[in-house]
């Protein structure tokens, strides 16, 4: 075995891989949330729909997103593998246990499995539809002198070869953009109370997974010191345990109650 495989398959190395992929996924969550905040803009989905095109066409982002898919799968299955190995370390359990650790830190694999199911549902709801299904198109008309944007749905059978068709009408002084209306798909999906509840509950799983996971990643990497560990733990609770899950949960709730 080379020194690298030996290191990465040791009990510490296994956790280092979990920590590194986990922290990558944490940064993804921040980027994904900030991008998706455009759903709250009251512009008929212009900002969100053009952002969706940018995220699926810009080469750098495409490379990162393939990395992201890989890291999600790696983190999930490597985590399940470690959990399986850890279970083998105690073949006979206790009759009585009074745990002195937090329930979420002991159940990261269960929380993670809920999140994996959530990711599959989430991607088939939007990512799969955006890439592989026929979506309605929407046309945005921007008045170049005022910057005002109006939108109109295209005919049902309309389709185009490019993801974003941009034309200028110089006589009328307008810029016309035609894109897939993912915003409408999102808005429609979140009229289903079952899906809204599933999304919100999944965010609870996310919150508990990250309250432990974010700070635990630093510990696995050996980054622990009274100088900065309190800050890491604070970020773990307030940013990853509270703000980010609330931000995500706000989206289905917003569409269900206000759209």
């Amino acid at each position: 075995m080379s020194w690298l495989t030996k290191t990465l398959t040791s009990s510490i190395g296994k956790k280092v891989l979990m920590a590194l992929t986990g922290l990558f996924l944490c940064t993804f969550l921040v980027v994904h949330l900030s991008g998706n905040f455009q759903l709250f803009k009251n512009d008929g989905g212009y900002a969100f729909n053009t952002y969706a095109v940018f995220m699926t066409t810009f080469p750098v982002i495409k490379v990162i997103s393939y990395g992201n898919y890989f890291f999600i799968l790696f983190h999930a299955f490597w985590g399940l593998y470690i959990t399986y190995k850890n279970k083998q370390a105690r073949p006979v359990g206790y009759a009585v246990t009074k745990n002195q650790s937090s329930p979420y830190s002991r159940n990261m694999a269960i929380l993670g499995t809920i999140l994996l199911v959530y990711i599959v549902v989430h991607m088939s709801d939007f990512w799969y539809k955006f890439h592989y299904e026929h979506l309605p198109y929407v046309q945005y008309t921007e008045q170049l002198n005022t910057g005002q944007i109006t939108h109109a749905a295209m005919d049902e059978g309309y389709t185009q070869d490019v993801k974003k068709l941009e034309t200028f009408n110089e006589a009328a002084g307008t810029r016309i953009v035609v894109v897939k209306d993912l915003y409408k798909v999102v808005s429609y999906a979140f009229q289903n109370i079952g899906l809204v509840l599933f999304y919100v509950l999944a965010m609870f799983a996310l919150a508990f997974h990250l309250v432990h996971g974010f700070q635990s990643a630093f510990q696995s990497l050996g980054l622990r010191h009274s100088k900065y560990t309190p800050l890491i733990k604070g970020i773990s609770v307030w940013v990853f345990g509270i703000l980010i899950p609330i931000g995500y949960a706000a989206m289905p709730l917003y569409f269900y109650f206000f759209k």
Partner: peptide, 15 residues
């Protein structure tokens, strides 16, 4: 040696 003995990994639960 710790790994060879069959102890598990650390989940940082603090127990």
């Amino acid at each position: 040696q710790m790994d060879a003995e069959g102890f598990g990994s650390c989940t940082n639960t603090g127990a």
